[in-house]
Design a protein around this nucleic acid. Structure first.
Lengths: 187, 187
DNA sequence: ATAATATCGAACAAAGTGTTTGCTAACAAA
DNA sequence: TTTGTTAGCAAACACTTTGTTCGATATTAT
């Protein structure tokens, strides 16, 4: 790919992230992004059709990274909720969100965090649907599997919101314990 | 209150609700609302400062109604999660959302449902914090109470989202059973 | 070196925002 | 029924944002 394109794309992403930290997504204008990224108006529209488009692509970048790595680890180890070590995978995801040089938490902490959590939830659903739930106890009780998947990802996202609201005071390990305490009985 | 004000306010609410069902909140303009409500531009701004302001007031109207009634019932009966009949109160809330002549589900089903669910979640948190959780088993395990409250309301809202996504196929009673199956072990 | 193309600034129409002004009609209270 | 008050209205306003077009310039891959 043309180096210029890559440079521009990075500048836009960076500007977008910086702006997200200081003002709400819905109040942000394309002009703001253009100014911050220091690019031409035409250039922005050559890369993204709309502001929403930019948001979506940014989310794909962010979360696909977190989850693709998670899935790779899963291939070598056993991370099934039932047979494996769920605590390890949960802790892993939480740490990945903290450590990331992509500043995921910075964005999630912003006023617009909810928007991202919606995307986050979609990825979680996929992850869970794909591998985690083989042979749950709940199937015996007639609970539909997709209800269960939805319950777990809602709870996870809800927990992350709570975590953020509490200034990330708890360690990923402690959080994983909390999560498993309220969720594990359900799976 | 002046009859004219009430009439205008209703017209705006109705137009807003109708538009919400057909297009996303963020794509909606004040002009759209004005046109649909068939009122003057000046009049809209005399009632609401911004579109966000309108949304917020609408949510207060909607959910405060649901929950105030719920809380009244709680006073006469015992609806504590621990000592009372939680299934009854959950079923009650779900039915209230279905039956309401205020078309809550119509709005929740719209593209902008997430926005409302955020408000919904806030009310749920209040409701739970106020009365539901006296003497949970989880306090023994060192789980903070506000984590638990957050978990339950996240799960509830997540369930409603799932319900809507599945075209409200399940009965409130069945849904309550599902919910208690995955939540009750946690309280 | 050359052909392709990414970026740029300037300008543009179109649409939306939020406010002001002067007028009219509806209202509550006497 | 009269009177003072208030809500609603249309028109106009300056302003911002949007998304596009244009030709010119600089960078890139080959």
């Amino acid at each position: 790919m043309d180096r210029r394109q890559q440079k521009t794309r990075n500048a836009i992403f960076q500007a977008f992230g910086a702006l997200l930290a200081e003002k709400n997504y819905s109040k942000m204008t394309v002009q703001n992004i253009i100014d911050k990224a220091n690019i031409g108006r035409t250039t922005f529209y050559a890369h993204f059709q709309t502001k929403d488009d930019l948001l979506k692509e940014m989310c794909v970048d962010l979360f696909s990274h977190v989850f693709s790595e998670t899935l790779n680890i899963e291939k070598t180890h056993d991370f099934s909720m039932k047979t494996g070590n769920p605590r390890a995978i949960i802790t892993h995801i939480l740490y990945h969100m903290l450590d990331s040089n992509k500043n995921i938490m910075g964005i999630l902490t912003s006023e617009s965090g909810e928007l991202f959590l919606t995307f986050f939830r979609q990825y979680l659903n996929k992850l869970l649907a794909a591998r985690i739930l083989e042979g749950s106890d709940m199937s015996d009780k007639g609970i539909p599997e997709d209800f269960l998947i939805n319950h777990i990802s809602s709870s996870f996202v809800g927990m992350v919101q709570w975590w953020i609201k509490n200034s990330l005071k708890q360690s990923p390990e402690l959080l994983s314990d909390y999560f498993l305490s309220v969720i594990a009985p359900a799976v």
